[in-house]
Nucleic acid binder design. Structure first.
Length: 282
DNA sequence: AGCAGCCTGTCA
DNA sequence: TGACAGGCTGCT
C-alpha cells in the first residue's frame, strides 16, 4: 500500500502521538504478521517506552527503550490506527496497549504486512543484508546516476527495486516517469548521467510535494487518525488510463511492466525506440 | 531478470 | 467469474 510519502506521514503521526509513551501490553491477533511471534514483540516492546519513529524507504521503525526497534513493513494494506477498547477495527492484526488506556492498532486487510522486532545487531544486519538500498530522498545524485547507467534492465523495474533505491513504489514511479518524460520500458543503462540525475531530482520533488499533502489515498491508506492523504488529486499518470494527458491531451495508456500495472502518456513519454531515447544513447 | 505466491476485497 | 490492487520474498 503505502510508498515513501505515506510511510513518512505515518512516521510523523507516530512521533507526535506515541513517542514518550509506555507500551503496557502487546496482543498479536495474526501470528504470521510477526515472524518473531508474540514473544518477540513483547521482548522488544512490553514494559518499554516508545522513543520515536524512524523510516528508511518504505520501512518504518518504531524505536523503543533499550535499543530495540520494531520494523513495520506495511506492504499493500498495512495501517497504524489510533484505537480504544470500545471498538477494535476489522482486520486488526496486532494491538499495542499504552499506559493511559489508548490503543495503537496495526490493521492489515491482506496480511502481507510484517512487524519484526530488531535489536541493535538485527537493525544493522537489516541494512547490511543488501536487500535495501539508499533512501531515495538521501541518495547522492552522482552515485545514483552512475549506478543507474551501469544497469542493463528497463527503467521502471529498476526504480521499483528496493535494493537499488529504497522508497519508490508503483504510484510515484509512474508519476516520476511521466514528469520526466521517460518511457517505463526505456533501457536504464541508455539514459546517460544527466538524464539519470534528472530522474532522481524529479522523483524527489514529487515525493516532497506528496509528503506535504500527507501522501496519496487511492483506496485504503490513511494516517494514524484515519485521515486520508491529498496527493492523489495531483496524479498525472497513475490511475488515469484512458483519460487525457494533462500536458498534451493524448489518452494515458495502461501496460504491464514487470507484473505491475503501468500508466504513461505515449506522447510525452517517448517509446524506448523513439528519438528521445536515442539522444543520449551511446 | 522474471514470475508465482502470499491474502482479502472490490469492481466490471 | 475474472481481473486487479499502493509490496516483498523466494524460486527458476
Amino acid at each position: 500500500m503505502p510508498e515513501l510519502p505515506e510511510v513518512e506521514t505515518i512516521r510523523r503521526d507516530l512521533e507526535e502521538q506515541v513517542a514518550g509513551r509506555l507500551v503496557r501490553r502487546v496482543r498479536l491477533l495474526a501470528p504470521k504478521t510477526a515472524p518473531g511471534g508474540l514473544e518477540g514483540l513483547e521482548r522488544a516492546m512490553a514494559g518499554r517506552r516508545v522513543v520515536g519513529a524512524g523510516r528508511h524507504g518504505k520501512n518504518l521503525f518504531i524505536q523503543m527503550e533499550g535499543g530495540w526497534r520494531v520494523l513495520a513493513q506495511l506492504r499493500m494494506t498495512g495501517q497504524f490506527l489510533w484505537g480504544g477498547p470500545e471498538r477494535l477495527p476489522a482486520h486488526a492484526r496486532a494491538v499495542f496497549e499504552l499506559e493511559d488506556g489508548d490503543w495503537l492498532v496495526f490493521r492489515d486487510i491482506r496480511r502481507f504486512g510484517r512487524l519484526v522486532p530488531l535489536d541493535e545487531a538485527g537493525f544493522e544486519a537489516f541494512f547490511s543484508s543488501g536487500r535495501v538500498g539508499p533512501d531515495v530522498l538521501e541518495v547522492d545524485a552522482q552515485a545514483f546516476a552512475h549506478r543507474l547507467a551501469s544497469r542493463r534492465g528497463r527503467l521502471k523495474p529498476l526504480l521499483l527495486d528496493q535494493s537499488f533505491v529504497a522508497g519508490l513504489g508503483n504510484i510515484y514511479v509512474d508519476e516520476t516517469l511521466h514528469l520526466a518524460g521517460l518511457h517505463p520500458l526505456a533501457p536504464a543503462g541508455g539514459l546517460g548521467p544527466d538524464t539519470a540525475a534528472r530522474v532522481l531530482k524529479t522523483a524527489q520533488d514529487i515525493l516532497w510535494r506528496a509528503i506535504e499533502l500527507r501522501g496519496s489515498t487511492t483506496s485504503n491508506y490513511v494516517g494514524l487518525a484515519g485521515r486520508p492523504g491529498g496527493f492523489q488529486r495531483h496524479h498525472r499518470a497513475y490511475g488515469r488510463a484512458g483519460q487525457p494527458c494533462l500536458a498534451c491531451g493524448q489518452a494515458i495508456e495502461r501496460i504491464v511492466v514487470g507484473g505491475r500495472g503501468t500508466c504513461f502518456c505515449p506522447g510525452c513519454q517517448a517509446h524506448p525506440g523513439g528519438p528521445q531515447a536515442c539522444q543520449e544513447s551511446p
